[in-house]
């Protein structure tokens, strides 16, 4: 179905749209005081699997840690709106990301956590089908992850 296989031409369209947005950034619509790593990670968002997305985003791999607390439902009431949150006891956190392993593009969100911001984020994500949700916390330059399977009975892809 429409969910699993993005066509090649569509990817080109996306790429085109992405560069428009980046041009926009260059003109300074987003305040220049943003953190150093404020560039939209276009490439990471375009990867299919979670491993490739993590590699593109961080250039390294994450280790599972019980210090990363991932809060996600057992069964999503609807794949279109799945409330997912993460919190951590880790210190010196600089970023938090969420990946949905079986989505067409695994990376869902990448949050930059400046100093003074609490390392905890709640958001609502789309899930195409039952699969793992992965949260990655970047702490003192290292990556720590937590993974949870969320069952999806009504997929969030529509169509």
């Amino acid at each position: 179905m429409t969910c699993g296989s993005p066509s090649f031409s569509r990817r080109l369209v996306l790429q085109g749209a992405g560069s428009v947005a980046l041009v926009g950034l260059g003109f300074g619509t987003v305040p220049a005081v943003a953190a150093a790593n404020d560039k939209y990670p276009e490439d990471a968002f375009r990867q299919k699997g979670d491993a490739d997305a993590i590699k593109a985003l961080y250039g390294k791999t994450a280790e599972a840690s019980d210090k990363v607390k991932l809060d996600a439902p057992e069964i999503a009431e609807n794949g279109a709106v799945v409330p997912i949150a993460v919190a951590t006891a880790l210190t010196a956190v600089t970023s938090i990301s969420f990946l949905v392993s079986e989505n067409p593009n695994a990376l869902a969100a990448f949050y930059v956590i400046p100093e003074g911001t609490v390392p905890a984020v709640a958001n609502r994500l789309k899930m195409a089908k039952t699969c793992n949700v992965i949260a990655i916390v970047e702490s003192a330059g290292k990556l720590y992850s937590a993974t949870k399977e969320v069952k999806v009975t009504v997929g969030g892809c529509g169509g």
Binding site: P31, V33, A34, A35, D38, Y40, P41, F45, A80, V81, V82, A85, V100, N103, N105, L107, A108, A109, F110, Y111, V112, I113, P114, G116, T117, V118, A120, V121, A122, N123, R124, L125, K126, M127, G156
Partner: peptide, 26 residues
């Protein structure tokens, strides 16, 4: 206060009418 306290980078998998929650000190 002239400082970015939170920056979200989102892909297409964030739900319609997106929601986010975070906290900061100060």
């Amino acid at each position: 206060g002239g400082r970015t306290v939170f920056l979200a980078n989102w892909g297409a998998a964030v739900s319609k009418d997106p929601y986010v929650k975070f906290s900061f000190k100060g």
